[in-house]
């Protein structure tokens, strides 16, 4: 049975440890630098391309890049969520106290999603700049941000899982990256078969396929279903992993 009180206590502790660590600020500095540089470049390109909209030349490509950036950031921000607990023996404390394993997993996921959303929040400067330059297509921004938030949930759920199966932060972050990158490559793997059904199925498993819709401003129901089932699957795996630790 999930206890929201327990989740709140644990999430608060996790967030505090995230924002007291210099790691998140170093990542934030690098992230804003890269995003700012990309934005500036896309704006320059947009000026050179005739008969094209800001949406096609700036917003869609920048959110495509953001998606890839979070694929690199999520492994870094989630690598310590369980490995640190193992290192400090604090998992024993959590195990014997009144909190249950699902509370622990959900609080870790929520805290890591919030830390990534903090970075995403920094990108709000982009629509603000475009608003003051006269751009008014808000639908695409809402769709892109919604897709980004769902993608972050997926990436963090994989990161939390790999952190639970490893006692080493570096191993956990590499595992997360390769798992996510592997899932991204599913879009290419679909080209390897002539069977349309198999190709569609493989494409469906890849995260990129589902994100593309959001990046173009189209929110499709099967994309939302994918984005909801994906983290649930990894939450289940992490929960089972914690449960197996007891045996």
């Amino acid at each position: 049975m999930i206890s929201f009180g327990n989740i709140f206590i644990l999430t608060k502790k996790e967030l505090k440890s995230y924002f007291l660590s210099p790691l998140i600020y170093i990542v934030a500095a690098l992230f804003t630098l890269i995003v700012g540089w990309l934005f500036f470049n896309y704006l320059i390109i947009a000026k050179q391309v005739e008969h094209s909209s800001i949406t096609d030349t700036v917003i869609v490509p920048i959110f495509g890049n953001l998606n890839f950036l979070f694929l690199l950031i999520a492994p870094i921000t989630t690598m310590g969520v369980f490995t640190e607990e193992y290192k400090n023996n604090t998992m024993d404390l959590l195990h014997i106290s009144k909190v249950n394993d699902l509370d622990i997993v959900l609080s870790k996921l929520i805290a890591s999603v919030f830390s990534n959303l903090f970075l995403l929040l920094l990108t709000l400067i982009l629509p603000i700049i475009l608003f003051f330059s006269g751009h008014s297509d808000w639908g695409i921004f809402i769709s892109c941000y919604f897709g980004m938030i769902l993608s972050i949930f997926c990436y963090c759920s994989v990161g939390v899982f790999t952190s639970s199966i490893s006692k080493n932060q570096i191993v956990a972050s590499f595992l997360t990256f390769f798992l996510l990158f592997g899932l991204m490559l599913f879009a290419l793997a679909a080209n390897a078969t002539d069977n349309q059904m198999v190709a569609e199925f493989i494409r469906y498993l890849g995260i990129t396929f589902h994100y593309q819709g959001f990046a173009r401003g189209a929110i499709r129901n099967y994309d939302v279903v994918y984005y909801l089932t994906f983290p649930i699957f990894f939450i289940f795996l992490t929960y089972k992993r914690l449960d197996a630790r007891n045996w």
Binding site: S17, L20, N88, N89, T90, I96
Partner: peptide, 12 residues
Amino acid sequence: GYLPENPPLYMN
């Protein structure tokens, strides 16, 4: 109440 060999502490 359980105190393991290495105390479970959050160092920060």
